[in-house]
Design a protein around this nucleic acid. Structure first.
Length: 812
DNA sequence: TCTTGTTTACAATACC
DNA sequence: GGTATTGTAAACAAGA
């Protein structure tokens, strides 16, 4: 123990020695740096840096050494705190600064180092603050805001140039200008492009602003890049522009919003707290970007490379897609999306309302972005991209043509004009074109260079979609997740011949009337249908319906949509599951599979199914009405935590094409509009109201009394979540762990690979078979217990027709 | 009051 | 010119 050098101990001293510096020197440098930070005078820093290359080297080496040893953040932390805050000279502060170690990225300049230091310090402080402060857990947002807002308000007024200068200096480029501007004259108008103003931003209140300044919020990464056009190469950190301006420092309030995603402790999450340093001046909720280390913590991954401050050529949808796909689970909260965008594309600043509004607008209107409701306690709703829609976001771009729904629709419906082609050659916005031209470089395609790294999907997209190995892995995948991640096929394996039918029959009893009505149809009802099948009408629904009910079909539908994509992949994963099952068929034709599985049913495969009859139903448009009703039917809340897997299966949503592009309708979320629509309007409306507005699930429960989960199933694709939360209202129900159901589950042990053999008792919400069974059962009840086949074959009509007739509620 | 989400409307642009 | 896409602005509602 006794290391003689305990004090100096660390390699630092060694380094210093090697360098020829003394600790005093180091301290001095540190002080200088601090001053710099405090002052944020880039110039000084540079001067400093220039002057003391030695110091830098030393620091760097230190860092490296430290890193090499271990990440030991903790170790340095203590010191770090000091640093940030004008550290007491007493402690050799230094050490800490570096410790963060430079990430893989090159920290070329001292600035980078400093930033890191600050970050660390912030973190520490953050932690402290959190502890000290109420730190409202879950819904940080509000908290964050308040604080931020407060600070900002202050800052904004004060904000003096000080901040700006700081940043500005760092930024150098455009950003600086912008940033500075804000304070200027600008009126706070949010409107048009005042991004600059952001800093000031007042009105809106967004917190932002904070002062990161002190710390120079330089977001690490972002700062670097300025490259306008594309996102520069991944890592390059160029100090250059680096100047890093932290692109948004001002904006950094950013994450005041942490609120959104509760689960993660994303740095952002507690942003406000974070910057302890300047609390006084500015709490700076935002906090600098997390270090690489921190990145892990974030719900999303940030692309490496410098971030261009220029406006990306990508559409908002593409940006959103990148953001969402950068998350392991492919879902982020609005806040997180904002954060991601502001970080990766500094061009977008937190304070601005324009782009944020656009983001929201796109989320709401774009089908591919599915809303996932979560328990409030967990946080706000998340926006997800389903596997089936990954193609849409290939290469970081957004091509609606590839939306599962659209594709399906396209299949059924005559290809519209541009539909498919477009994607590739299709129209591009000017920006895109420019981008393309300009940068053959990665701009567009790779544009989101960042993405590339994280998005597995991007690369090979299609195939992998279902798997998502890349991202997900990091996160904990709960059982549920895994299941969900599995290809739709797997998840919803073709009905095991054995189980379903039998089940159906048997279950019918339990189901009872209502159940029948409710469950299936209901399940399908608003939420499901719409959600599940994007193009419900078009393909998905029909397909589904054929089987029995929309619900069941949905599953398939999902497949459908994804079929193309997933198919290949699925096979791999699925095998185990399906052993018995014949997933294969599905792929080939989901429909078919079902048929087979269903065995008896020859129900037309979905495709054939197209059964449009029903879905087509007219109501597509109704959306408008829905307005309130249900806004979008959010997808059932996954386990908010993430347990919720991305629904691979694209629920067939009725893409009711509003007027505009189909793309806009978001299937999932806006159930009302989209969903219900297809079915008979009246019915749908009713149904929605009943379901959406009120707790829909309730009906279900009662119906069978069986599993809530089952009900969810109805919803289609993702089996479970809904039940949980809704029923309980709050409970997210952890889909993950299979519940033991009370009810009898007769026989289908074999059915789902997931479930423990032989025991149906264990309820596996994810178990497709179970779901299907439920549905069938329900159908059976309705139908009269006809064999599934009967349902399909004969029933088809019934199904479709019945909805309205038999029970409006059901369908919608 | 703020955030989030939805919806509508309009304008600009691109494609056919 | 019509249609589609995208972006923007705004109104509104719901929830915290």
């Amino acid at each position: 123990m006794a290391d003689p050098h305990a004090t100096p101990v660390s390699p630092i001293s060694q380094v210093l020695q090697s360098i020829g510096l003394t600790r005093d020197d180091l301290l001095r440098h540190s002080d200088q740096m601090r001053q710099f930070l405090t002052t944020e005078d880039a110039n000084s820093l540079r001067a400093f840096a220039a002057g003391s290359s030695d110091a830098q080297n030393a620091i760097v080496s230190m860092i490296r050494s430290s890193r090499a040893r271990s990440h030991s953040r903790s170790v340095s932390r203590p010191s770090a705190s000091t640093v940030s805050q004008t550290p007491p000279p007493s402690t050799p502060v230094k050490s800490e600064p570096m410790e963060p170690a430079i990430p893989l990225r090159h920290m070329d300049s001292m600035e980078m180092i400093l930033e890191r230091k600050n970050r660390q310090a912030k973190r520490e402080k953050r932690g402290k603050k959190e502890k000290e402060r109420p730190a409202p857990s879950p819904s940080p947002a509000s908290a964050g805001f308040s604080l931020d807002a407060f600070m900002q308000s202050r800052d904004s007024r004060r904000v003096p140039p000080a901040d700006q200068p700081e940043f500005s200096t760092s930024t150098t480029s455009q950003e600086t200008q912008k940033d500075t501007l804000p304070t200027l004259p600008v009126t706070p108008q949010h409107k048009n492009y005042y991004r600059d103003y952001d800093t000031v931003e007042p009105p809106s209140s967004r917190p932002k602003k904070d002062t990161l300044a002190p710390t120079h919020s330089p977001t690490p990464a972002r700062s670097r890049a300025t490259s306008t056009s594309s996102y520069a190469p991944p890592i390059v950190n160029e100090p250059l522009d680096a100047n890093p301006v932290t692109p948004r420092r001002n904006h950094y309030y950013k994450s005041p919003l942490p609120s959104s995603s509760p689960p993660q402790s994303s740095p952002f999450a507690t942003p406000s707290a974070r910057q302890v340093i300047n609390l006084v001046s500015s709490p700076g909720p935002m906090g600098p970007l997390p270090n690489e280390d921190e990145y892990d913590e974030l719900p999303y991954k940030l692309p490496a490379g410098p971030y261009s401050t220029t406006r990306p050529d990508l559409s908002y949808a593409a940006l959103i897609g990148q953001a969402i796909l950068s998350s392991a689970e492919h879902r982020l909260t609005l806040q997180e999306i904002y954060d991601w965008i502001t970080i990766v594309y500094p061009y977008f600043k937190r304070n601005e309302t324009t782009w944020m509004n656009s983001i929201r607008h796109v989320l709401s209107t774009t089908v591919c972005f599915r809303k996932v409701m979560r328990d409030r306690s967990l946080g706000r709703t998340q926006w997800a991209i389903w596997d089936c829609d990954l193609e849409c976001f290939a290469n970081g771009n957004f091509r609606k043509e590839f939306c599962a729904e659209l594709r399906e629709a396209a299949k059924k419906a005559p290809p519209k004009k541009r539909a498919v082609d477009d994607s590739a050659s299709g129209r591009k916005s000017k920006r895109q074109k420019k981008a393309v031209l300009e940068s053959s470089s990665p701009a567009v395609p790779t544009a989101p260079a960042p993405q590339v790294p994280f998005h597995p999907s991007f690369g090979p997209m299609p195939q992998f979609l279902p798997l998502f190995p890349p991202l997900a892995p990091t996160y904990h995948q709960s059982y549920y997740d895994r299941c969900t991640q599995l290809p739709a096929d797997v998840i919803f394996p073709p009905l095991p011949s054995s189980s379903n039918y039998v089940h159906v029959v048997s279950t019918s009893e339990s189901l009872g009337n209502e159940a029948s009505s409710v469950p299936l149809s209901s399940a399908i009802k608003s939420s499901d249908i719409p959600q599940t099948s994007p193009t419900p009408q078009s393909s998905s629904i029909p397909a589904l319906t054929p089987n029995c009910s929309s619900s069941s079909p949905q599953m398939p539908s999902e497949d459908h949509s994804q079929t193309d994509i997933h198919v290949k992949v699925n096979k791999e994963p699925s095998p185990p599951l399906e052993t018995g099952l014949t997933l294969v068929d599905k792929r080939g034709s989901d429909n078919v599979e079902r048929k087979q599985d269903v065995t008896a049913n020859k129900t037309p495969s979905k495709k054939s199914v197209a059964l449009p009859p029903m879905p087509e139903s007219p109501t597509l448009d109704r959306r408008p009405k829905s307005k309130k009703p249900g806004k979008r039917a959010p997808i059932p809340p996954p386990s908010a935590d993430g347990s919720y897997p991305r629904p691979c299966t694209p629920p067939p949503r009725p893409t009711t094409p509003r007027n505009r592009g189909a793309t806009q309708l978001s299937a999932v979320r806006t159930p009302l509009s989209h969903k219900g629509l297809h079915m008979s309007p009246s019915a749908s409306l009713v149904h929605y109201k009943s379901h959406l507005d009120p707790p829909p699930p309730s009906t279900f429960h009662q119906d069978d009394g069986i599993n809530p989960a089952v009900f969810d199933i109805e919803n289609v694709r993702t089996p479970s979540r809904r039940r949980g939360h809704r029923e309980n209202g709050s409970t997210l129900f952890p889909p993950v762990t299979p519940k033991k159901l009370v009810f009898p589950a007769p026989s289908s042990t074999i059915e789902s690979p997931f479930r423990t053999p032989g025991s149906r008792s264990i309820f596996d919400p994810h178990d497709p078979s179970a779901l299907l069974d439920e549905e069938f059962a329900t159908l059976g009840n309705k139908v009269g217990q006809e064999s599934p086949v009967g349902l399909f074959g004969g029933r088809r009509g019934l199904l479709y027709e019945s909805p309205s007739i038999s029970s409006p509620g059901k369908w919608f």
